[in-house]
Amino acid sequence: MKHIWPIFRREFAAYFATPLAYVFIVIFLFAMGAFTFYVGHFYDNSIADLSVFFGFHPWLYLFLVPAISMRLWAEERRTGTMELLLTLPVPLWATVTGKYLAAWAFIAVALALTFPIWITVNYLGNPDNGVIVASYVGSLLMAGAYLAIGACISATTNNQVIAFVVTVVVCFLFCVSGAPLVLDFFRAWAPLALINAISSFSFLTHFQAISQGVIDLRDLIFFFSLIALFLTANVVVVDLKKSVG
């Protein structure tokens, strides 16, 4: 913890030291609003809940989270600060975790700033606030999973554009891995157990389960273990690059 904190603090402050944070938050909120009201026809539904709002999260995160994660390591490599960072007496896992948590906290801030819509539904009707809280938790976990994938991919390159594009593709596959698009590819040859395993990786399925208002331990374990897996991979990638140069 004593190692993670300074790294976290620096990273988190760095978002707000540049226009990045403000631009991101404005676009994030604008996109959330635009999709909810214009694409999702929030008012026309005449239902006091936020399922329309949360329904767009997996798709918005698909582009917005890689925009945050792409710079995590690629930028450090390009500007040379990687050398400074990795020669400080901090264990690698702490550096990886600190950077990751800072990015996650930043997304949490952006997500928290969507609170007016929560106030709106409460003003318009009597929504099930338990479901909304669960959905927020699910949304944040899903963002965390996207982010862990993106952080790991960012560590493999010094090119932010490559990091962005590859992250979008990988996150998309994870997101829709329960859909025919992905499963048909495996169905022809893979055993049923594997197909079930792949479809169980779907972010959509797990997120939808949570946003029904039921925080199932299995869904939590899914997201947390996926985050842990990709952060471990992130450590391994950075460590491998020490040997390869």
Binding site: R10, A13, A14, A17, T18, T79, G80, T81, M82, E83, L84, T87
Partner: peptide
């Protein structure tokens, strides 16, 4: 135990 100045003296430019 080491103080290290890497090549090009990299630092976080926005700080």
């Amino acid at each position: 135990a080491i103080g290290y100045l890497p090549e090009g003296a990299p630092a976080y430019g926005d700080m």
